[in-house]
C-alpha cells in the first residue's frame, strides 16, 4: 500500500530523503504542466517549477498535515505564478477576470506557455486539438488556472477555491466559463 502524500512529507520533514523522492515523482509531471501552461515560456516555467519545490523543501519544518499535501503544494505554486504575473505587469483585476468581464474577442492577457509550440509537432495535431490548444492559451489566466488545477491536480472545486484564494462560487464560475470556451473550440459549442 502506497504511503499517503502527507505521510511522505512528514517522513521527509523528519529526515527521510527517500520520502521526498517518492513525493516528487508523484507530483512533478502535473505540477510542471500546471506551471508550464500558466506562464509564457518554458524557461520561465522551469525556473518557477524549481522555485516551488525549493520552497517546499524550505518549508518542510512548518508542514503540518492539516490539509491535503496537494492543496499545500499548489497553493505554493499558485502564489509563485501570481508573483510571476505581477512581475510581468498584469493586474489582479485581470487575473480575476470573470466571465462577465471577459470578452472572447480580447486578446489573452498573457499568452500561456505553448507546450506544442514546435511547428512540426503542432502540424501533426489534428484540427480539434489544435483549436483546443489555442483556446486554452486564449483563456484568461484565472480561468485557465482553475481548469488546470482541475485537470492536472485533480482538485475539487472547494480545493481550487482554497488554493486560489477565491470563494467557491467564483471557482465554479471560472471553471464553467473555461469549459464553455474549450468545448466551443472542439466544435461542441
Amino acid at each position: 500500500m502506497e504511503a499517503a502524500d502527507e505521510e511522505l512529507m512528514i517522513a521527509y520533514r523528519d529526515g527521510d530523503a527517500a520520502a521526498f523522492e517518492t513525493l516528487y515523482a508523484r507530483h512533478k509531471g502535473p505540477l510542471f504542466r500546471y506551471v508550464l501552461r500558466s506562464v509564457k515560456a518554458r524557461g520561465e516555467a522551469e525556473e518557477l517549477f524549481h522555485d516551488v519545490w525549493l520552497r517546499v523543501i524550505e518549508a518542510r519544518e512548518r508542514y503540518t498535515p492539516s490539509a491535503r499535501f496537494t492543496t499545500w503544494l499548489y497553493t505554493i505554486a499558485h502564489n509563485r505564478v501570481v508573483d510571476h504575473w505581477r512581475r510581468r505587469g498584469l493586474k489582479l483585476a485581470s487575473l480575476d477576470a470573470t466571465d462577465a468581464a471577459y470578452d472572447a474577442s480580447d486578446p489573452p492577457l498573457e499568452p500561456a506557455a505553448a507546450p506544442q509550440d514546435e511547428p512540426q509537432r503542432r502540424a501533426e495535431l489534428n484540427e480539434d486539438l489544435r483549436r483546443l490548444g489555442g483556446a486554452l492559451e486564449a483563456l484568461p489566466p484565472a480561468q485557465r488556472e482553475v481548469f488546470l488545477l482541475r485537470e492536472e491536480a485533480g482538485m475539487s472545486l472547494p480545493e481550487i477555491a482554497e488554493v486560489t484564494g477565491i470563494d467557491l462560487e467564483a471557482a465554479k464560475s471560472r471553471l464553467r466559463y473555461a469549459l464553455a470556451k474549450l468545448r466551443e473550440a472542439l466544435g461542441d459549442g
Binding site: F32, P115, E151
Partner: peptide, 23 residues
Amino acid sequence: EHEDPRVSAGYRQLGAESPPEAL
C-alpha cells in the same frame, strides 16, 4: 457543467510534458 469528458480527453492529448532530468 463543471465537467466535460471530451474536453478532458482532448486536453490529455495535448501532451504530458515533464521537467528535464537536470532539473
